[in-house]
């Protein structure tokens, strides 16, 4: 925001209240009410206004209190933001960022817990990013704001409270990450695990346990869901010959399905085992804690899937 006066933030409670999760802390004080806008409670309203402002020269950052509420505004995200550059033959670019927490938090039920990664990632015209660590959040958000195309930026509520070590390079004001590049968080040789957002942490924990049992897992933090870094994924699978995809969203037409297709198209001959897909349960999120736990992937699920892929058979039934 200090680098470009055209950048402004709008959404519910982003100003005086400093964001429902305090993500915009201090911004109102620093940049004033013209650039940090508290809006009426109308997702379709402020998304539409944001798109219009982007059509005409500004660079809005639109916050959804949760991406579940972006459903009220999806027409502006898909029909307006994603398609206008194409429909106008390049006359209208839409440099806008839609951001906010996505996916499951804890104990907030079906209408606060859905992952929208595969929804937005299926739409040409959009870029979809999902940070895991502080480094990701800083580098990717800056990239998103500077990008000339509309970006959907999927954060995670539980990660807001988590701390990560950061290097001096990351803290430097010039730090930025490229869009469309995955990060290999941990190198390995026996099985590739792809994940994004909170599931990267789970995948790393699973890799720790697997290492103790002699399985070397390579963990890929996707960072960018669209464009998808197919070459990094395929290069890894060609090395490990096994793949486990992890996501919190629903399994059908999910991010894992797309990754699986990419690997089958490009690296089928390298696969030594069927691809394992770990995803959320195919039900709306239940509220009760015991059921909720059953509905989202756990570290143990990833460990079991990796072992199955490595022919250390664990029957699916044993999962329960």
């Amino acid at each position: 925001m200090s680098a470009d006066p055209k950048v402004f933030l709008m959404g519910e409670e982003v100003g005086e209240y400093q964001g429902a999760y305090k993500i915009s802390k201090g911004l109102l004080e620093k940049y004033g009410p013209e650039r940090v806008l508290d809006t009426p409670i109308t997702e379709a309203g402020f998304s539409g206004i944001g798109v219009g402002a982007a059509y005409y020269g500004l660079r809005p950052v639109v916050e959804f209190m949760t991406f579940n509420f972006s459903m009220q505004a999806i027409d502006h995200i898909i029909n307006s933001a994603a398609k206008s550059n194409y429909m106008s033959a390049g006359q209208i670019s839409v440099p806008i960022v839609f951001r906010g927490p996505n996916g499951a938090a804890a104990g907030v039920g079906a209408q606060h817990s859905q992952c929208y990664a595969s929804w937005y990632a299926s739409c040409p015209g959009l870029k979809v990013l999902s940070p895991y660590s502080s480094e990701d959040a800083r580098g990717l958000l800056k990239a998103a704001i500077r990008d000339p195309d509309p970006v959907v930026f999927l954060e995670n509520e539980l990660l807001y409270g988590e701390s990560f070590p950061v290097s001096a390079e990351v803290l430097d004001s010039s730090f930025c990450l490229p869009i469309g590049k995955a990060k290999i968080e941990r190198e390995g040789k026996d099985v590739t695990i792809t994940a994004f957002s909170k599931m990267v942490g789970y995948a790393l924990k699973a890799a720790d346990t697997l290492a103790k049992e002699g399985i070397s897992a390579e963990v890929i933090n996707l960072r960018s869901i669209r464009p998808l870094d197919r070459s990094t994924i395929n290069a890894s699978v060609r090395k490990t010959n096994r793949l486990v995809t992890v996501e919190e969203g629903f399994p059908q037409h999910g991010v894992g399905a797309e990754i699986c297709t990419s690997v089958i198209e490009e690296s089928f001959g390298y696969l030594d085992a069927p691809v394992e897909r770990i995803a959320g349960a195919d039900v709306p999120m239940p509220y009760a804690a015991n059921l909720e736990r059953m509905a989202v992937p756990q570290v143990e699920d990833i460990i079991r899937a990796a072992k199955r892929a490595c022919h250390r058979s664990v029957p699916v039934a044993a999962a329960a």
Binding site: A44, I49, G50, V51, Y56, P60, N79, S84, S88
Partner: peptide, 22 residues
């Protein structure tokens, strides 16, 4: 003159956004 949107009425909020920019 912004490209016509077939979706009815989305242009109304876009106009407000552009007005804010102006």
């Amino acid at each position: 003159y912004l490209t016509v949107a077939s979706t009815i009425a989305t242009q109304i909020s876009h106009a407000v956004g552009a007005a804010y920019s102006l």
